[in-house]
Design a protein around this nucleic acid. Structure first.
Length: 278
DNA sequence: ACCCATGTTCTTTG
DNA sequence: TCAAAGAACATGGG
């Protein structure tokens, strides 16, 4: 579930497994996830040592000893894992890097193959090429207000726009808007500075909470809307799911589900009153 | 068997 | 240029 908190969790895992290690082999099981030619990837990585890691939005960077970067984007279903023996490679491992001296393999795992792997000269170059805005943990309230204020578009798709700020995905935006008590279809330009300040604080709250729990949503506070989403196996169609579908603040109010910009959207009609046109 | 899905990007239409 | 809607991508899981 790779939004910013998941990717940050992956980054920390990669830092433990790979920093200080040298890439001794590149195993490509499915070139579909490569956004760079296979031989170019090998040439760029073989013999290189990983000196550090970083992250911008949903993108994870492995910093190499020649100053270049291995960039991982996890699409909808991507993740990382590690294994020692080739026979133990996780299912859906698309690419793996053999590390020395540990002997571990770092695996890029992605069932649906929307993820992408590429090389970049620098984080700045990559950010510019992909037109990524400031990371959602870095952007200031003032900057956010300035960017939202000149757009008529609904605030939900605006927050999902990686060019405005990078790292927010579908469930986080719903959670953020719920915490900020804002309706997803409020036009960006209709938000007051005070509301944007609340929104900014909600972004910080949701992201830091999610990272603290290593993006395991089951452990999130009961005050979070996420428990009303239908991800839970148990929540699919079964009667027992009812308990998950009410607003954390209004135990009698059922959470509404509908689509905004083609994405499933969850709101509390009481906490998040309808769009106010400016 | 059918429907849904955490993301990105392109196309179409106005 | 901007905005909105839809499709496409690839595939597993409920």
């Amino acid at each position: 579930m790779p939004e910013l908190p998941e990717v940050e969790t992956y980054r920390r895992f990669i830092a433990e497994v790979a920093v200080g290690q040298t890439i001794a082999a590149v195993q490509i099981n499915d070139a579909h996830v490569l956004a760079v030619a296979e031989d170019e990837l090998r040439a760029g990585l073989l013999g290189r040592t990983v000196t550090g890691t970083s992250r911008l939005g949903k993108n994870c960077f492995l910093e190499l000893d020649n100053g270049r970067l291995l960039v991982l984007h996890f699409g909808m279903t991507g993740g990382v894992d590690a294994y020692r023996d080739t026979a133990d490679a996780p299912r859906f491992t698309r690419v793996a890097w053999q590390l020395e001296p540990s002997g571990l393999h770092l695996a890029f795992v992605d069932p649906r193959k929307f993820g992408r792997i590429r090389l970049a000269d620098s984080a700045e170059a990559y950010q510019k090429a992909k037109k990524l805005g400031p990371d959602a943990l870095i952007i200031t309230a003032a900057e956010l207000h300035q960017k939202l204020s000149r757009r008529q578009v609904a605030v939900k798709p605006l927050l999902l726009d990686q060019g405005l700020t990078a790292g927010l995905g579908n469930w986080i935006v719903d959670e953020v808007l719920f915490q900020a008590r804002l309706h997803p279809e409020r036009p960006g330009s209709s938000l007051t500075e005070a509301e944007t300040t609340v929104l900014h604080a909600a972004i910080q709250l949701v992201l830091t909470t999610a990272i603290r729990h290593e993006a395991n949503y089951r452990h999130f506070p009961a005050s979070f809307l996420i428990h009303a989403r239908e991800w839970d196996e148990a929540a699919h169609g079964s009667a027992s799911s009812d308990a998950h579908k009410f607003c954390p603040r209004h135990p009698k109010t059922v959470i509404d589900k509908y689509y905004v910009g083609g994405r499933a959207t969850y709101v509390c009609g009481v906490c998040q009153p309808g769009p106010l046109l400016k």
